[in-house]
Design a protein around this nucleic acid. Structure first.
Lengths: 191, 191
DNA sequence: ATTGTTTTGGATCGATCAGTGCATAACGTG
DNA sequence: CACGTTATGCACTGATCGATCCAAAACAAT
């Protein structure tokens, strides 16, 4: 019996995600969010309880999407481990012109890391999951003789994600794809 | 004949630097700057023309300080090139508890990179200088037989600074020093 | 068609934003 | 001591911040 929504909540979260991704939390005003989503203030505050809550929803959407894709890649046993790692890193080499430069997660760690424990907890847990998955994949490759078993698997996994973070910062700065490619190749030489 | 300043401009820039470094540009208000520097609004706007100008001064101070230290290290020919690279990366391993986590330059690239061309230009030029210096040092080590001459020196230099960026993002997230250490060791294995 | 519930638009809230104006205080110089 | 100049303290500007309120609108169920 109630009046139904005239907008798609998912689309609104998606628009907010791109805006926060591009401009950060503080620099994005609720007015900007209204314009980007095409909604009025009331609709936004009715569907989401606050700017911070909408940010949380947007970040979760980003994290879920990218983590799912990464985990699928990490656990794809049809590919050699080196190839999987290459593809993980490769996502930061050629920027998608339809999306903001850099990585929303990295941006958020940098902007809110020291100040927002809720957000930090969310990102930490996600990072742990990915780290554990890659560590397991590397260990499996080691026992299969695909990689040198002497190296610390957890350290190698941390290494991959650290380089990925660096590549995404470089992408935010507008690094040239050929430079990024050289970094990926140099990274793989450690394995 | 005029009334002299009762505060040290350098100390004020230093306090502003730490605040911007810790909290970012947008999240730092002029009121915060007054409290951190101990100055009144008039004194700040008299010595610096705007919040943006003070940020620019603070960032320049940071860049000058860190770039000088890095260049000195890069060009220290008494050390093997691998040791120089290790020490560059090592600066991100054990955080100084007296200073904000992470790197002011990285934070600024992430927050203002897509929006502030002046700041971006400053950071790009600085990055170019450091990249050129490390490329030259690597090339020299290659001709001296210290490193494999087959590898692209510029690519290796980009690799080092990319990993450094990743380490600094990880430091902002509060990464454990032992994890950071493992990343440095894995990085050096590419050389 | 009436009722009940929720959405929506628009005005508006107090707080805070970066920045300014002005009167006064403080100092070096003559 | 008096003058010239700058620094400082404080009130204040208009704009914008995130968030709220309320009345009108829209729809489903009866």
């Amino acid at each position: 019996m109630p009046r139904p929504r005239t907008f798609d909540e998912d689309r609104a979260v998606d628009a907010a995600m791109h805006l926060f991704w591009s401009s950060g939390y503080e620099a994005t005003s609720t007015q900007d969010l209204c314009e980007a989503t095409g909604l009025g203030r009331s609709s936004i505050y009715n569907a989401f309880s606050s700017k911070h809550d909408l940010f949380d929803r947007a970040l979760r959407r980003y994290v879920d999407r990218f983590t799912a894709a990464q985990l699928e890649l990490i656990q794809d046993e049809t590919l050699p481990i080196r190839e999987r790692i290459r593809r993980i890193l490769w996502t930061a080499v050629e920027p998608d012109p339809d999306e903001p430069a850099g990585c929303f997660v990295i941006n958020t760690i940098v902007e809110l890391g020291p100040k927002d424990a809720d957000i930090t907890g969310l990102l930490d847990r996600d990072h742990e999951v990915k780290l554990a998955a890659l560590t397991a994949a590397i260990r499996a490759a080691q026992t299969a003789g695909e990689l040198d078993a002497e190296q610390d698997a957890a350290g190698l996994a941390a290494y991959v994600f650290t380089v990925l973070g660096g590549l995404r910062v470089a992408a935010r700065r507008g690094a040239a794809p050929e430079s990024q490619r050289a970094v990926v190749e140099a990274t793989l030489r450690s394995f």
